[in-house]
């Protein structure tokens, strides 16, 4: 049974460096409201930080949408990142451990995926990228 979130979602524009920090803070607030454990909060916020930076640097800016979900009585926090940038040409490659398009430490998406419970990636060359992550309460 999936019910609609009890609290309204928050949308954060990701256009500048300082927006990455705002995404982190907002995700932290939602994670606390969903009563995630401290370790799970930290994992989710870190994952959101990575993806927000990707949205800014590779996607040329976009937005992050944060909300609380509920599935069979278990609360979770979902963060969806969307940009209209160049997209990811080779998704499998992008999800390989150690791959990076440059600049990073090569932990980008694969490392981020390990931090969350659900990870969904929609992308097409030239049409932007949409990544949704969820962390459920244990």
């Amino acid at each position: 049974m999936t019910t609609s979130p009890s609290e309204a979602s928050t949308v954060i524009e990701v256009r500048a460096d300082s927006d990455v920090v705002r995404v982190r803070q907002s995700v932290r607030d939602f994670a606390m409201a969903a009563k995630l454990s401290l370790v799970d909060q930290t994992k989710l916020v870190t994952a959101a930080s990575e993806l927000a930076r990707n949205t800014l640097v590779y996607g040329g800016g976009g937005e992050a949408r944060v909300r609380i979900l509920e599935r069979t009585g278990v609360a979770g926090v979902e963060v969806v990142f969307a940009d209209e940038g160049p997209g990811i040409p080779d998704v499998d490659l992008a999800l390989t451990d150690g791959w990076t398009s440059g600049g990073g430490l090569g932990l980008g998406l694969s490392g981020t995926r390990r931090l969350v419970d659900d990870f969904e990636l929609d992308t097409a060359a030239g049409e932007g990228t949409r990544i949704s992550i969820v962390k459920w309460r244990r």
Partner: peptide, 14 residues
């Protein structure tokens, strides 16, 4: 470094 941060960094692969 806080424990939760350390656990997250290791999971991230750093």
């Amino acid at each position: 470094m806080q424990p939760a941060v350390a656990i997250t960094l290791v999971e991230l692969g750093l």
